[in-house]
Each structure stands twice: as structure tokens, then as C-alpha cells.
Design a protein around this nucleic acid. Structure first.
Lengths: 186, 186
DNA sequence: TGGTAAGGCTAATATATTTAGCCTTCACGG
DNA sequence: CCGTGAAGGCTAAATATATTAGCCTTACCA
């Protein structure tokens, strides 16, 4: 009955991403994805090599979107303001995509996707360099990213259980770290 | 033929942990675990409720060990030295158990295991309080843990690809953050 | 108008987890 | 002694999944 396309790789990836985010990693079965795009499971193999390949494509999609979000966040030219905005955008993205964000940053996931979102953000490194000086730009950038990623991961994991104000902890950490990273004398 | 025990829950968990760490998450099958402890797969259900229950038990085991390691690391009484030692011990543990460490900290994993390792470390919070003052102890502790966890995760994920000295970035981050967290006036 | 390739489909294969139900051994009370 | 019951194995079977094989239809194009 079917002639040419009834779906597309992009639709398959989008369905997989939605499924992953809304119903978790175990719900990403070929059967569910196929249902979502309106074909039978074996037909998906005309679009993706395998389930793990679909996984990879979904996470790359997420990484690409994160990169865009970050690149669009630095606007003012003031390094402290811009880094704050990028960190906030980063956190907002993770909150909007908790499952896929976490998976994207996990080791087994994609060799490359983690680095991808960061590496491609030359904007970020430049902004850090303006704050920390070129000598310390790389370790300073690593400090900020590590903190932000760690904070968000723990937050999403529900690891902050001792009460207190999590927003306050975010602001505290961001302010202290940016201050600590500023180059001593200029 | 068999009468009483041929294995034990502890042995099953230990085998699962070894398998997970050495061969990755896909290798943790009931069949492999059963082979490792010398029984057939269905017999494992006399020990654990399900595969995901075994998963949970393995990660709890890892979390408990991490807690012990951290509690043992603070020795000198000087908060900066002690926090540095705890951070180093934390990182060393993660390097020795990369797969299970990462899984333990992942959201879907165990509601509780993430918090567990941190919450049970009252030692850590006390040490931070001595450095940051009681007002800021909680956000300061969250800043340190977030940074350390984020750094280690990215490091294990191979996210630090822009060259540079990763050891140097660790020392840089630790020193700057500890300095930034110290209470302004005392 | 007929060949061809894209893109569906069903059927079959292989591997997982998990449940059902059986069988043997041991400890222990009569 | 012996018989009984529970612990803890086992095999067989049910269910779910990814994946492969091979077929069939449609649209395009020479």
C-alpha cells in the first residue's frame, strides 16, 4: 500500500525524543516509536541503524539545541552578566529537558555529545577569558561548567534534600565562583 | 542436588557490581550474574526481587562505600586541608568506580542513593561550616559538591577535550572555590 | 510501458526477564 | 529412625524486545 515516505528520520528522532523525555528510557522501544510515527517497528530500520543509533541521534539533537540556546544567551557584553545569563539558560534548558539532558551528559551515552555542546560554544570560552584573563580561561571555564552541570544534575536527581533554598544556593554558587575567577589584578 | 545455600544475596550483589563496572550496564544480565555466582538465572530470584532490584542493591552498595571513604578522609582539623582531602578522596573513588559512580548519581537510578552519600556525611557539612560560617554552610556545601561532582562526571565522560592540564583545572577550581567560600570576615 | 528502488509489511530468530511448578537436601520433632 | 516441611536449586514456559529476511506495492523515469 505505501508508496514513498510515510515518515522520516527527523520524525522518528522527534518521536523518540518525546518518548524519552515524557516516559523515560525504558519507554523508548522500537514498537513505541513506530506507533508514534504510524508505521510498524521493522520499518524504522529504514530510518535508523538500530535502537542505540536512534538513541544517539536523539541525544545529538538535544546537544545541538543546547548549543543554540547557549550561543543566544550572551548579549550584553559584560562578562559577569553574560556568564550569569548563560548559566541561567543552561539551567533552564536542563529543567525543560531533564531526562534527555541527563542522558546526554552521561558517559556511556555519546562519545562526543558532551564535549559537543561545550566545545562549540566558543562564545563561552571567550566570555570567560574576558573575566579570568587568557592564562586562566580554560581552567576557569571548566570550573564554571563543572559547577553548573553538577548543580543541575544533583538538583534533577533530587539530591538537595537538606532543606534550604535551592535558588539561593544557585545564586550563592554562581556569584562566589564568578568572583573567584575574576583575574586578581588587571 | 543442592541443599542449602549455593550463593547469597551479598555474593549476587558483588557479582553484579563487578560485572557492571567491568563490562558496562548491558552486561548486567541475570544470566551473567548467575554464571558468576554458579547458579542458573531463575535461582537469582530467590535472592533479589528483579533485575532492577539488583541494580538498586548494587548502587546502594557503592553509595555506602563512598560514604565510608568520605568519612575517613577528614583528618587534620584544618577545614581547607580537610575539604581538599575529602574532594580528592571523592575523585579517587569515582576514578576507581567510574561506571557505578556515574550510575549512582544518575536521576533514574535510586531515589535516595545520591542524597544518601552526601546526607550521611555530617562530617562534610561541619567542615564546610567551619570555613564558611554557619549562615552559608548549606549553600557553600552545595557549591563544593556540585563542582566536584560536575568536574568528575565531565572528566569521566571525556568532556575535557580542549587540551590543557586537567589536574591543573582541578586544583584551580578547588583552590578558587575554597577561597571564595571562606567567610568574608570572622 | 516496464524496470527499479524506496519504503512499507509479515514472519521468523535470538535473547532477556520473569513466572510456574517440580525435586532434592537438610534439620528437627515424634 | 523416620517423616515432613521449607529452603533453594532446576527446567520449562510465557512474554517482551530488537533485529533480520524476504516480500509486495507504489511512484517515477527511460
Amino acid at each position: 500500500m505505501p508508496a514513498h515516505p510515510q515518515t522520516s528520520t527527523a520524525a522518528v528522532v522527534a518521536a523518540g525524543r518525546r518518548l524519552l523525555e515524557e516516559r523515560g528510557v525504558d519507554a523508548l522501544t522500537m514498537r513505541e516509536v513506530a506507533d508514534a510515527v504510524g508505521v510498524r517497528a521493522p520499518s524504522l530500520y529504514k530510518r535508523v541503524r538500530s535502537r542505540s543509533d536512534l538513541f544517539r541521534l536523539v541525544l545529538e539533537d538535544v546537544a545541538d539545541e543546547l548549543t543554540s540556546v547557549l550561543d543566544a544567551a550572551a548579549m550584553t557584553g559584560d562578562p559577569v552578566a553574560d556568564l550569569g545569563a548563560m548559566a541561567a539558560a543552561y539551567r533552564r534548558f536542563a529543567h525543560a529537558n531533564p531526562v534527555t539532558y541527563t542522558l546526554m551528559m552521561a558517559p556511556q551515552a555519546i562519545p562526543g555529545a558532551t564535549a559537543r555542546s561545550v566545545r562549540s560554544s566558543a562564545t563561552f570560552l571567550n566570555t570567560v577569558a574576558r573575566l579570568a584573563g587568557p592564562m586562566h580561561a580554560l581552567p576557569a571555564a571548566r570550573t564554571i561548567v563543572a559547577w553548573a552541570h553538577g548543580f543541575i544534575t544533583m538538583e534533577l536527581a533530587g539530591a538537595f534534600r537538606l532543606g534550604g533554598d535551592v535558588e539561593n544556593a544557585w545564586d550563592f554558587g554562581l556569584n562566589r565562583i564568578l568572583a573567584a575567577i575574576r583575574r586578581p589584578a588587571d
